[in-house]
Design a protein around this nucleic acid. Sequence first.
DNA 1: TCAATAACTAACTAAAAAGTAGGTTGTTAC
DNA 2: GTAACAACCTACTTTTTAGTTAGTTATTGA
Lengths: 102, 102
Amino acid sequence: MGGKWKLLILFHLHHFAKKSYSDFKANLPGISEKMLSQQLKELERDKLIAKNQLSVKPNRVEYFLTARGQSLGPLYEFISKWGIDYLMENNIDYIKDQHLYK
Amino acid sequence: MGGKWKLLILFHLHHFAKKSYSDFKANLPGISEKMLSQQLKELERDKLIAKNQLSVKPNRVEYFLTARGQSLGPLYEFISKWGIDYLMENNIDYIKDQHLYK
DNA sequence: TCAATAACTAACTAAAAAGTAGGTTGTTAC
DNA sequence: GTAACAACCTACTTTTTAGTTAGTTATTGA
């Protein structure tokens, strides 16, 4: 489960419950479509997320956390809080310094 | 912090407080010396661990968690528990199936 | 009808991480 | 005085991951 974007994808689903492919695209700045669909597929394979097929003719889906994905909830929370604390302790303005993380 | 062995190193220190280079070597089956010293160095660089130089003429050291390394304690605990639960839910005998994780 | 959007896939390249095989310095144990 | 151990380091290869660019199908909105 060590992909560059997986934790972020899971974290988004943890907070917003349901998200479409393009929701991720819009909210994960810098991710390429290849990475996005690859990581979604691996998360599905590992049963951490699943998707509803809303329609087929125009292909519309929504992703959500499985029970297993939800069971990692405390982890998402902890890492998020730890990260924010880390940035604050070190006086890093994330918005200003985003170039550091690309 | 995404090295293959880092979490295991941190987890060992979390449980045993102080460990020497060769303690890790003995308790992380499969790690190469290159990987071990590389990951220790990166963890030091990131201020998650530190070492005491016990002697120089014969080079003896002991590694331990810094305050920052300790602040991740709940993470080590959670992941460890989650992993064990995962193995049990799926009837995986870790000892028997170690080859799966090499 | 033409552009934009949604949800993808595929081919290829580049960069990062890990593995392999060796070498070093200085000890103590036999 | 030789082997074994501790704590490393170096060069090189292989594997894995990520980035780039370019398609595909189908739909709605102007």
